[in-house]
């Protein structure tokens, strides 16, 4: 199953990921990305991959995608 990874240090708090897939991404009180789930079933792969690529800070990756 594809695995989702986030680099909180790189995150700039744009929330592009949250807007694209708010069932996988959220933003914590410090304004940084939080992953709500790291395992991405096939059915969600394309959508979550698109959300990860939407990150302007390149802080997200979907591995094995």
């Amino acid at each position: 199953m594809p695995i989702l990874k986030a680099d909180a240090a790189a995150c700039q708090g744009y929330a592009s990921c949250v807007i694209a897939a708010d069932d996988y991404f959220d933003i914590d009180d410090d304004g940084l990305v939080v992953l709500l789930s790291t395992e991405v079933p096939e059915a969600d792969r394309e959508r979550v991959d698109r959300a990860a690529r939407a990150c302007p800070a390149a802080a997200l990756r979907l591995e094995g995608a």
């Binding site: 700039q12 708090g13 949250v18 708010d22 933003i27 410090d30 304004g31």
Partner: peptide
Amino acid sequence: ASHFRCPYHGWSYRNDGRIVGLPFHR
């Protein structure tokens, strides 16, 4: 829409009005 993003500097809000994204907050 689940969120609204301001076109000017990119702040974003949930559809209940709460701020979500504030670029370069830190």
